[in-house]
Nucleic acid binder design. Structure first.
Lengths: 333, 333
DNA sequence: CTGAAAGCGCTAACAT
DNA sequence: ATGTTAGCGCTTTCAG
């Protein structure tokens, strides 16, 4: 049997209430009795039972995090930002991988709610009607991070993916390229696909360049798909002289695919990636890429969630973090 | 107010016990009444409170995972293995980053125990006396993964790091190299440093090669430290013709450092890494490396933990997974 | 400043 | 097959 607050109370010859007070740092305890209690706790090796506390107080100091895949460099970095801030605010994190699978996501939300988490951080592809329904019925605050919510009906933190893609492609165009390839994950993936795709097309249009289906390769966001994308776009009737890849990992694939086929980067083809993961400096040439502050997105979203959980006033429910281009060697100086 | 089991009981005109039975899939319920209850649950939108259940049943179906840094490729992959198996056995995971900081680790163990996790998975550097003390007093099973426990007093899953390093270095030596560099994280880190260092020295000794301090560079396990290591070891009085790096990330640094200084890999210098993270195929030349089954270590350790939690019979408390060399292009065919 | 007592929502005997 | 009844360990009024 573990020792309980009752045992401590008896040992210290006070009431449970008093023990509870000292354990919770309530100032209304005479120093002398506080000491008595502390001693008893020490002597008995008492450790408060957070489950009982949770039941009584209706707070678990635990938040649920639904993430597509913790083994992805991108999400792992985000997760670290989340965890650090959570720790700072004394929360623990229940981490769940969803693989962006809607069924799983819905199921996980339910599980987390059953576990009485104080809040949920949702990272994923997209918010569907069904997600929205769930979220609305949740009794705790929910914040989205790196997740597209068309209707902007839930608090979220993001960067402007479309604008970021637009900026990157514009940079390429302004360097004189008229044939810019686009390599991405599934186009129907809201963040890694669609938004960047739209930004890409906008940039072309803005500069009166024709859109060419042959310069587009949509794979699965992996290195190998980047590699393969090269096969496809370099076979276009008119080859691209620059490539914008939707993730750094794909960009590495593109660079190596290009090099394997004896093209030189950046001399023959310039390449820009997206995310600025640690991978970007781990290639030759190093990768020029759109900086997405992953750690910060995680940190800020967690911070936002803590505010909701404490019912603090929140300014903007939708926060958009800045992005920028980091110039490295995969583009010409 | 959320709806409780009591509300459901009233709505279905049965007792709480019966509701509890159907919620928990107890077969001793007449189909008809089961349906009545299910309907009531549906109608009320009832969602069981896991905290209350936890308090009453003394099981939370949650396990704590203490991990050095989730943003590391290596640990993220391990975490994925852990989470997948946990999900399979209906457990959730409370994920905590320790940064291998002993204070934090001890503190986290306590927090997790307070939260009444059903078990703990500990990944980290090393088990000290103090850790051991904590573990012994824990009321739940603890399994170590990718963590060195000198006294082998706790259940754990690992590969034989020393042997693996020995094998890699031996491979290099048998290819005719007499000057093999060793690049690693802090030598005093049990897994990434000491064990591999020992394996390295053993291999030299076995083949009657002299140990040369100048060929050893211990940094911080990062890409940049790999890069810098090259500066050091290539300045040795007699340069190495092969390098064994303790992690893939360092190995990438070494390869690029070498290439930046106009050495050719593998022609001038052969390189072998360690881990077989996804990075290994994301370099040119692709990296020959020691395969450490990260996902499996995570999965197996979680599986082991479930056995302890279910008080099942466990065969070996210490499991050692196999390692092997994966030959790629950073070594000559 | 301290204590008594009523739950929090559920499970687990024990009855029936 | 179903109901009754204690708790699980803690927080939280409410008194004093």
């Amino acid at each position: 049997m573990n020792t309980t607050i009752y045992d401590v109370a008896r040992e210290a010859a006070v009431s449970m209430a008093t023990v509870s007070r000292v354990v919770n740092g309530n100032p209304n305890v005479k120093p002398a009795t506080r000491k008595k209690v502390l001693d008893a706790i020490e002597r008995l090796g008492y450790r408060p039972n957070a489950v009982a506390r949770g039941l009584a107080s209706k707070k678990t100091t635990t938040v649920g995090v639904i993430i597509p895949d913790i083994s992805s460099i991108f999400f792992a970095e985000l997760a670290r930002g989340i965890e650090d801030i959570a720790t700072m605010y004394k929360y623990n994190i229940i981490l769940c991988n969803s693989d962006q699978n809607k069924e799983k996501e819905i199921h996980l939300i339910n599980t987390l709610l059953e576990k009485q988490v104080d809040g949920i951080l949702f990272l994923g592809g997209e918010i569907t009607e069904e997600h929205a329904e769930q979220f609305k019925h949740a009794s705790v605050p929910i914040v989205l991070a790196a997740t597209v919510d068309e209707n902007k009906q839930f608090p979220s933190v993001n960067i402007d993916y479309q604008q970021a893609a637009f900026d990157a492609v514009t940079e390429l165009i302004e360097r004189g390229h008229e044939r810019v390839g686009f390599v991405s994950g599934p186009i129907d993936d809201p963040v890694t696909g669609y938004q960047k795709y739209t930004g890409y097309k906008e940039a072309l249009k803005k500069h009166s360049l024709a859109f060419d289906e042959q310069l587009v390769a949509a794979g699965e966001n992996t290195y190998d798909d980047g590699l393969e994308a090269v096969d496809r776009i370099m076979k276009a009737d008119q080859m691209p002289t620059a490539v914008f890849a939707a993730t750094d990992e794909m960009a590495l694939g593109v660079i190596h695919g290009l090099q394997d086929a004896d093209w030189r980067v950046p001399d023959d083809v310039e390449v820009i990636g997206f995310d600025n993961t640690r991978l970007a400096t781990m290639v030759r040439p190093t990768l020029t890429t759109v900086v997405q502050p992953m750690y910060d997105i995680g940190a800020v979203s967690m911070r936002l969630l803590t505010k909701y959980m404490n019912q603090e006033d929140v300014g903007d429910h939708i926060v958009e973090l800045p992005h920028r281009l980091e110039y490295r060697m995969s583009t010409r100086a």
